[in-house]
Design a binder for these strands. Structure first.
Lengths: 161, 161
DNA sequence: AATATCGCCGAATTTAATTTCGTAGGACAA
DNA sequence: TTGTCCTACGAAATTAAATTCGGCGATATT
């Protein structure tokens, strides 16, 4: 299935609800979208099979669990051969403390989000990015002071028609 | 409860599992962490009450649902009074297409992640950020070419002890 | 119009969540 | 050491949810 999935309004509603209430019971979901539990479950299963729904996650509140810092690093490579990109991408995937990485256009090549215990540890991670055969020549770091608007959902209403 | 919650190994395991399998049944979870279903459920409820677990979410695969672009905008304010920050923060929370915003130190004041239908729409959102009484003087945009490592979980093993 | 297809509903069944309750083990004071 | 309190556990019972399945009606197809 290469094509975008054709979603009707009910599917959109299901996705919207599950984005925000990932652990809602099927019965409650069915009620919200005005379906019987069996039909609702069938649709959810289909959305999962088609991988419109990728997975389900608990959102943890790190504040309550431990001390930590978040940094956003703007990483530039020395050369822009496909091989250089691949090497870097492969490397960041192995680092648990790199929680997110995007390849971007603009003033740098990658934007890397790092969550680690403290600044000392961040320096270590930084060194690892610089010295790992990945051809990194520059890292500009932004320390996150406050997660003003944490990610919670995509704007489905804006994106779907 | 201002203090960090004291977590034993079992709690850590529960959180790790739920981060990745947010919709696992309590029975399966209990088996994974070597508890009876009732004890396991009691722990999960406690973690929820203490807001160590914030919420549950379905992770959608936007690729399969619609056309869209993701941009990361580095936003700088003209002045740095608390009031200026507040105004901007309040504003981005009202924009659905701003899916994430961090207040940061470094070369800019905010890092804003925007998901919208296309570049034309992104320009509109950009204008909204510039013209909204929020004292924005500069926006540097990075277009996301590829989500190399999408966020999926925090590195609990590194952060907890 | 006859037939096939699809998605829905509701009933029945299987499975899971939740509650209840008795007990074991650790901390602590006498 | 002994007794008491406290916490958390697991087993069993109960309640609720998930899942399966047969049949119905709408729509499309020939």
């Amino acid at each position: 299935m290469r094509e975008k999935r054709a979603l009707d309004r009910i599917d959109q509603n299901i996705l919207s609800v599950l984005q925000t209430e990932g652990r809602i019971t099927n019965q409650q979901l069915a009620e919200k979208v005005n379906l019987s539990p069996s039909s609702c479950l069938a649709r959810v299963r289909k959305l999962e099979e088609d991988r419109c729904i990728e997975s389900y996650h608990a959102q943890l509140n790190l504040e309550r669990l431990c001390r930590y810092i978040t940094c956003v690093a703007m990483v530039s490579l020395g050369q822009h051969r496909q091989e250089d990109f691949r090497t870097f991408e492969r490397f960041v995937k192995t680092l648990d403390e790199v929680v997110q990485c995007d390849t971007v256009s603009g003033g740098c090549d990658f934007i890397v989000r790092i969550v680690c215990a403290d600044m000392e540890r961040y320096h270590e991670v930084n060194e690892m990015l610089l010295n790992s055969g990945t051809n990194v020549v520059n890292i500009k770091t932004h320390v996150v002071m406050s997660e003003t608007k944490p990610f919670s959902k995509y704007p489905l209403d804006d994106l779907l028609q």
